[in-house]
């Protein structure tokens, strides 16, 4: 007589030891500090976004004639639709914030240095993916902001030398916003970008597992705790569970107290007086206002390029100059500039 467990065991060669081996990444002691657990936060939020996003896609209709009405219907008619839409919207905001915070932590602790340059670049791709998800996400509502945001973005892309026109046509599926534009954004938002993001996340974690987590020491720690490790499971796993639950509570509260509203329906004939993207694009938006057309595109491209290859730039600075910690100062200045531009954009109407 074969037990059901035995039946499964025979066919799936899983044992407790193997599981232990797979999950028991030894976690350095510094991860007991909360702010080192920021990497898991966007990953968790990504799962939330996938779940709520799939649910929203059950009712969403990606065509200019029906998109707005379907979002309205989700928000007003469908049971808990307003809540799931609110969670998805706030989840996006928190995810962008978490990615940025995680990146800043990595940057200021120098965790991107050799041999982790490649993972930094994967992380940069993750950041760009997240931002693009945000942009394509609010383009789907087909409210005024969606329409004009997409139009403005396409025209910005057109400023790119050589390939600008092509980029724009690719983005809009034509020279102007048309019937094929919205399905394009929808496929990007609901299929291509999430798949890319998921792949990159796997790669990101795989590389961490291969290289081990950067180990940090702190001066105020007792000697025996330095260099010590603890198990991912269950200790760090519990920490992640707590973070996950806290995030869910936060998201529920935000979605209920500040529910996702709906702007006016897109009107191709009237550009709104005041038009602003989501807060995480304020920097780029202000930059575009400061420098015109191609200059803005090229400078932004250069900045992103530099960020992308920063581990190598940093290595060069450390090798060739007398300022080994220059990256901290450059990072601080860049962070202040970003915060400054964001606040500037937030505080003015135009």
């Amino acid at each position: 007589m074969q037990t059901p467990i035995g039946f499964v065991r025979e066919r799936l060669p899983i044992s407790g030891d193997r599981l232990r081996e797979l999950t028991n990444e030894p976690v350095p002691h510094h991860l007991k500090r909360w702010w080192f657990a920021l990497g898991g936060t966007p990953a968790y939020l990504f799962v939330v976004q996938i779940v709520t996003g799939i649910l929203l896609a059950f009712y969403y209709q990606p065509a200019p004639g029906t998109a707005y009405e379907s979002v309205r219907s989700i928000t007003e008619d469908v049971a808990f639709g307003w809540f799931l839409r609110g969670v998805h919207r706030w989840g996006a905001t928190l995810m962008v914030a978490a990615v940025i915070l995680h990146q800043m932590r990595v940057f200021f602790t120098g965790a991107y240095r050799k041999p982790r340059e490649i993972n930094w670049m994967v992380g940069m791709c993750l950041l760009l993916c997240t931002l693009m998800l945000g942009f394509t996400g609010y383009s789907l509502v087909y409210e005024q902001l969606s329409f004009w945001g997409a139009t403005v973005a396409a025209n910005v892309a057109e400023g790119t030398p050589l390939i600008g026109g092509m980029l724009k046509r690719f983005l809009l599926a034509g020279d102007t916003y048309n019937d094929h534009t919205l399905p394009r954004f929808f496929i990007l938002h609901a299929a291509l970008l999430p798949m890319a993001l998921a792949g990159l996340v796997v790669l990101h974690i795989l590389i961490i597992r291969l290289q081990g987590v950067t180990e940090l020491e702190f001066e105020n720690e007792p000697e025996e705790e330095k260099q010590s490790h603890f198990n991912f499971f269950p200790d760090h796993f519990y920490t992640e569970l707590m973070i996950g639950l806290l995030l869910m509570i936060l998201l529920s509260a935000l979605a209920t107290i500040f529910p996702a509203a709906m702007g006016p329906r897109a009107d191709p004939l009237t550009t709104p007086e005041i038009i602003k993207p989501e807060w995480y694009f304020y920097v780029a938006f202000r930059w575009l206002k400061l420098f015109s057309g191609t200059a803005a595109i090229l400078s932004m491209g250069f900045i992103v390029f530099t960020m992308f290859f920063w581990p190598f730039v940093d290595a060069w600075i450390r090798r060739r100059t007398r300022f080994p910690e220059a990256s901290v100062w450059i990072g601080a200045i860049a962070a202040l500039a970003i915060i400054g531009l964001t606040l500037w954009e937030a505080s003015v109407a135009h």
């Binding site: 049971a79 808990f80 307003w82 809540f83 707590m242 639950l245 806290l246 869910m248 509570i249 529920s252 509260a253 979605a255 209920t256």
Partner: peptide, 17 residues
Amino acid sequence: FLGFTFLASLLFVQYEE
């Protein structure tokens, strides 16, 4: 505790609904 707090927040969501 957090799990039940999450439940409570969802009950509030239900109330709103």
